[in-house]
Protein backbone atom coordinates (compact mmCIF):
# COMPACT_ATOMS: atom_id res chain seq x y z
CA UNK A 1 0.00 0.00 0.00
CA UNK A 2 2.98 2.31 0.52
CA UNK A 3 3.32 2.15 -3.19
CA UNK A 4 0.02 3.99 -3.50
CA UNK A 5 1.39 6.81 -1.36
CA UNK A 6 4.28 7.15 -3.75
CA UNK A 7 2.08 6.90 -6.83
CA UNK A 8 -0.26 9.55 -5.47
CA UNK A 9 2.61 11.83 -4.61
CA UNK A 10 3.95 11.51 -8.15
CA UNK A 11 0.45 12.02 -9.57
CA UNK A 12 0.19 15.29 -7.69
CA UNK A 13 3.34 16.35 -9.52
CA UNK A 14 1.59 15.64 -12.81
CA UNK A 15 3.13 12.23 -13.55
CA UNK A 16 0.56 10.60 -15.85
CA UNK A 17 2.11 7.13 -15.83
CA UNK A 18 2.01 6.93 -12.05
CA UNK A 19 -1.53 8.23 -12.07
CA UNK A 20 -2.68 5.63 -14.57
CA UNK A 21 -1.00 2.88 -12.58
CA UNK A 22 -2.61 4.16 -9.39
CA UNK A 23 -6.11 4.38 -10.89
CA UNK A 24 -5.80 0.85 -12.26
CA UNK A 25 -4.40 -0.69 -9.08
CA UNK A 26 -6.84 1.01 -6.76
CA UNK A 27 -10.03 -0.30 -8.39
CA UNK A 28 -10.33 -3.66 -6.56
CA UNK A 29 -9.84 -1.88 -3.23
CA UNK A 30 -12.48 0.73 -4.08
CA UNK A 31 -14.89 -2.00 -5.15
CA UNK A 32 -14.36 -3.78 -1.84
CA UNK A 33 -15.11 -0.59 0.10
CA UNK A 34 -18.28 -0.02 -1.93
CA UNK A 35 -19.34 -3.66 -1.55
CA UNK A 36 -19.25 -3.33 2.25
CA UNK A 37 -21.97 -0.70 2.00
CA UNK A 38 -23.97 -2.00 -0.91
CA UNK A 39 -24.04 -5.60 -2.05
CA UNK A 40 -25.97 -4.64 -5.13
CA UNK A 41 -23.58 -5.68 -7.90
CA UNK A 42 -25.37 -3.66 -10.57
CA UNK A 43 -24.54 -0.34 -8.95
CA UNK A 44 -20.99 -1.07 -7.84
CA UNK A 45 -19.59 -0.16 -11.24
CA UNK A 46 -21.53 3.10 -11.29
CA UNK A 47 -20.22 4.07 -7.85
CA UNK A 48 -16.71 3.01 -8.83
CA UNK A 49 -16.83 5.47 -11.73
CA UNK A 50 -18.04 8.25 -9.47
CA UNK A 51 -15.37 7.45 -6.91
CA UNK A 52 -12.60 7.57 -9.49
CA UNK A 53 -13.89 10.95 -10.64
CA UNK A 54 -14.02 12.14 -7.02
CA UNK A 55 -10.46 10.93 -6.46
CA UNK A 56 -9.42 12.92 -9.52
CA UNK A 57 -11.13 16.07 -8.25
CA UNK A 58 -9.82 15.63 -4.71
CA UNK A 59 -6.23 14.87 -5.63
CA UNK A 60 -5.10 18.18 -4.11
CA UNK A 61 -6.47 17.12 -0.70
CA UNK A 62 -4.16 14.12 -0.38
CA UNK A 63 -1.48 14.62 2.27
CA UNK A 64 1.52 12.45 1.36
CA UNK A 65 2.45 12.08 5.03
CA UNK A 66 -0.83 10.25 5.68
CA UNK A 67 -2.22 6.91 4.57
CA UNK A 68 -3.37 6.68 0.96
CA UNK A 69 -5.65 3.79 1.83
CA UNK A 70 -7.46 5.86 4.44
CA UNK A 71 -7.84 8.74 1.97
CA UNK A 72 -9.30 6.52 -0.75
CA UNK A 73 -11.51 4.70 1.71
CA UNK A 74 -13.18 7.90 2.96
CA UNK A 75 -13.80 9.12 -0.59
CA UNK A 76 -15.26 5.76 -1.65
CA UNK A 77 -17.53 5.56 1.43
CA UNK A 78 -18.71 9.09 0.86
CA UNK A 79 -19.48 8.50 -2.81
CA UNK A 80 -21.33 5.29 -2.00
CA UNK A 81 -23.55 7.05 0.53
CA UNK A 82 -24.14 9.96 -1.86
CA UNK A 83 -25.05 7.59 -4.67
CA UNK A 84 -27.40 5.52 -2.53
CA UNK A 85 -29.06 8.66 -1.19
CA UNK A 86 -29.52 10.34 -4.56
CA UNK A 87 -30.62 7.20 -6.39
CA UNK A 88 -32.88 5.78 -3.73
CA UNK A 89 -35.99 7.20 -5.33
CA UNK A 90 -34.86 6.18 -8.81
CA UNK A 91 -34.30 2.59 -7.76
CA UNK A 92 -37.68 2.35 -6.09
CA UNK A 93 -39.24 4.16 -9.05
CA UNK A 94 -37.83 1.51 -11.37
CA UNK A 95 -39.45 -1.17 -9.26
CA UNK A 96 -42.74 0.76 -9.17
CA UNK A 97 -42.79 1.04 -12.96
CA UNK A 98 -42.15 -2.67 -13.26
CA UNK A 99 -45.01 -3.25 -10.79
CA UNK A 100 -47.36 -1.04 -12.74
CA UNK A 101 -46.55 -2.74 -16.01
CA UNK A 102 -47.10 -6.11 -14.44
CA UNK A 103 -50.49 -5.00 -13.19
CA UNK A 104 -51.43 -3.66 -16.58
CA UNK A 105 -50.45 -6.96 -18.18
CA UNK A 106 -52.97 -8.69 -15.93
CA UNK A 107 -55.61 -6.42 -17.39
CA UNK A 108 -54.60 -7.39 -20.94
CA UNK A 109 -53.56 -3.84 -21.74
CA UNK A 110 -50.17 -2.80 -23.03
CA UNK A 111 -49.33 -6.44 -23.42
CA UNK A 112 -47.53 -5.76 -26.62
CA UNK A 113 -45.22 -3.17 -24.98
CA UNK A 114 -44.54 -5.44 -22.08
CA UNK A 115 -43.77 -8.41 -24.28
CA UNK A 116 -41.30 -6.31 -26.20
CA UNK A 117 -39.80 -5.01 -22.97
CA UNK A 118 -39.46 -8.49 -21.53
CA UNK A 119 -37.41 -9.48 -24.53
CA UNK A 120 -34.80 -6.97 -23.35
CA UNK A 121 -34.02 -9.06 -20.29
CA UNK A 122 -32.57 -12.56 -20.06
CA UNK A 123 -34.70 -15.72 -19.70
CA UNK A 124 -33.57 -16.05 -16.11
CA UNK A 125 -34.55 -12.49 -15.35
CA UNK A 126 -37.92 -13.03 -17.02
CA UNK A 127 -38.51 -16.02 -14.77
CA UNK A 128 -37.57 -13.99 -11.70
CA UNK A 129 -39.89 -11.13 -12.67
CA UNK A 130 -42.80 -13.48 -13.32
CA UNK A 131 -42.30 -15.23 -10.00
CA UNK A 132 -41.82 -12.08 -7.94
CA UNK A 133 -44.19 -9.66 -9.62
CA UNK A 134 -46.97 -11.86 -11.03
CA UNK A 135 -46.96 -14.85 -8.73
CA UNK A 136 -46.11 -12.60 -5.76
CA UNK A 137 -43.31 -14.74 -4.42
CA UNK A 138 -40.57 -13.39 -2.21
CA UNK A 139 -36.92 -13.23 -3.25
CA UNK A 140 -36.20 -16.13 -0.90
CA UNK A 141 -38.92 -18.34 -2.41
CA UNK A 142 -37.84 -17.42 -5.93
CA UNK A 143 -34.24 -18.23 -5.05
CA UNK A 144 -35.22 -21.66 -3.73
CA UNK A 145 -37.26 -22.51 -6.82
CA UNK A 146 -34.61 -21.34 -9.26
CA UNK A 147 -31.75 -22.79 -7.21
CA UNK A 148 -30.05 -19.44 -6.85
CA UNK A 149 -28.91 -17.43 -3.85
CA UNK A 150 -31.26 -14.77 -2.53
CA UNK A 151 -28.82 -11.96 -3.23
CA UNK A 152 -28.31 -13.19 -6.80
CA UNK A 153 -32.09 -13.10 -7.31
CA UNK A 154 -32.29 -9.57 -5.92
CA UNK A 155 -29.42 -8.41 -8.10
CA UNK A 156 -30.88 -9.99 -11.23
CA UNK A 157 -34.30 -8.54 -10.45
CA UNK A 158 -32.86 -5.10 -9.88
CA UNK A 159 -30.99 -5.17 -13.17
CA UNK A 160 -34.10 -6.34 -14.96
CA UNK A 161 -36.18 -3.51 -13.44
CA UNK A 162 -33.63 -1.02 -14.66
CA UNK A 163 -33.67 -2.44 -18.17
CA UNK A 164 -37.47 -2.54 -18.23
CA UNK A 165 -37.67 1.00 -16.98
CA UNK A 166 -35.26 2.25 -19.62
CA UNK A 167 -37.12 0.44 -22.38
CA UNK A 168 -40.62 1.38 -21.29
CA UNK A 169 -39.78 5.03 -20.75
CA UNK A 170 -38.37 5.56 -24.25
Amino acid sequence: MNNWNELLKQSQQGNKNSYKKFLTEVQPFVKAVIYKRSENQSIIDDILQETLLAIHNALHTYDSTRSAKSWISVIAKNKTLDYLKSNQHKLSQAEDIADLKMESSNNDTNNYDLEKAMKQVSIKQQEIIVKMKIEGKTAKQTALELEMTESAVKTAAHRAYKLLKEFLEV
Partner: peptide, 20 residues
Protein backbone atom coordinates in the same frame (compact mmCIF):
# COMPACT_ATOMS: atom_id res chain seq x y z
CA UNK B 1 -18.83 6.52 -17.72
CA UNK B 2 -15.53 7.79 -16.44
CA UNK B 3 -12.73 6.57 -18.61
CA UNK B 4 -9.38 6.22 -16.86
CA UNK B 5 -7.57 7.54 -19.92
CA UNK B 6 -9.69 10.70 -19.87
CA UNK B 7 -8.80 11.26 -16.22
CA UNK B 8 -5.13 10.59 -16.87
CA UNK B 9 -5.06 12.94 -19.86
CA UNK B 10 -6.66 15.73 -17.87
CA UNK B 11 -4.13 15.38 -15.04
CA UNK B 12 -2.13 18.48 -14.25
CA UNK B 13 0.26 19.30 -11.46
CA UNK B 14 -1.85 20.12 -8.42
CA UNK B 15 -1.14 22.43 -5.53
CA UNK B 16 -1.90 20.50 -2.35
CA UNK B 17 -3.87 22.17 0.39
CA UNK B 18 -2.50 22.57 3.91
CA UNK B 19 -3.46 20.36 6.82
CA UNK B 20 -6.88 21.05 8.40
Amino acid sequence: MTDINTLVNSLEKVKTIRSP
